[in-house]
Simulated scan of single mutants.
Amino acid sequence: MDPDEDVDALVRAAQAGDAEALNELLVRLQPLVLHRCSRFLPHRMDAEEAAQDALLMISRHLRDFGGRGSFRGWVTVIASNCARGTYRSMRRHSEVVGAAPLLESADPQTTSVIAGTRLDLLETLDALGAAYPDLVDPFVLRDLGELTYDEIAAILNLPLSTVKDRIHRARTFVRGRLRPSAEHR
């Protein structure tokens, strides 16, 4: 049996109330969800926390998946949102308890290049969302979620040309913010 067909069968069974199918589905999704969360969060423990939140969200809202777009795409949306939510929560917590604030820009002497880039990207995604909220999801799904343009169009229920335009505009914004000499910081 094709792995995607097998997952689709598990989804249908879990949606019908089969607890064993739901359990098996979540076990199979765990590596994908952790990978998606790791694309955002620089520390494995944080990515694991976000992945657990995402798996819980998937289990609670599986009945809401109506087949618009791919199941993998739907999972990617949830994982991406949970990873970004985990980062925001960590940031708020550090501000509330008076801990050293999360850096606006990573210090290259104490932060790996990959971790610093992810922190900068999360800040940039928040700025993109504040300025152009309709550009965030297409960008995240394409460049971080690695979905095709067609999958994104189906998930977001948008024409393909609109998806491509939004991704182009988002990439332009992100590039301008992530350049070391950018004046936007």
Rank of each mutant, 00 (worst) to 15 (best):
G67M: 13
G67D: 12
G67W: 14
R68H: 15
R68A: 11
R68G: 10
G69N: 04
G69H: 07
R72K: 05
R72G: 00
G73L: 00
G73D: 01
W74V: 00
W74E: 00
V75S: 02
V75A: 03
V75G: 02
V75M: 01
V77C: 07
I78G: 02
I78T: 07
S80K: 08
S80A: 11
S80Q: 07
N81T: 03
N81I: 00
A83Q: 04
A83S: 04
R84Q: 11
G85Q: 11
T86S: 08
T86A: 11
T86I: 03
R88W: 10
R88Y: 06
S89G: 09
M90P: 01
R92H: 13
E95A: 07
E95G: 01
V96I: 05
V96Y: 01
V96W: 00
V97Q: 09
A99Q: 15
A99C: 11
A100H: 06
P101Q: 07
L102P: 03
L102W: 14
L103F: 00
E104D: 07
E104F: 05
E104R: 06
S105H: 12
S105W: 09
A106V: 02
D107Y: 09
D107H: 05
P108W: 06
P108E: 11
Q109C: 12
T110C: 10
T110P: 03
T111W: 04
T111F: 03
S112A: 08
S112W: 08
S112G: 15
S112P: 05
V113H: 15
V113N: 09
I114Q: 13
G116R: 10
G116H: 07
T117G: 11
L121H: 08
L121P: 05
L122G: 07
L122K: 05
E123H: 14
E123I: 09
E123F: 11
T124G: 05
T124D: 05
L125F: 14
L125S: 04
L125K: 14
L125V: 08
L125W: 14
L128T: 02
L128Y: 06
A130V: 07
A131I: 01
Y132P: 09
Y132V: 01
P133C: 10
P133I: 06
D134I: 04
D134L: 14
L135E: 14
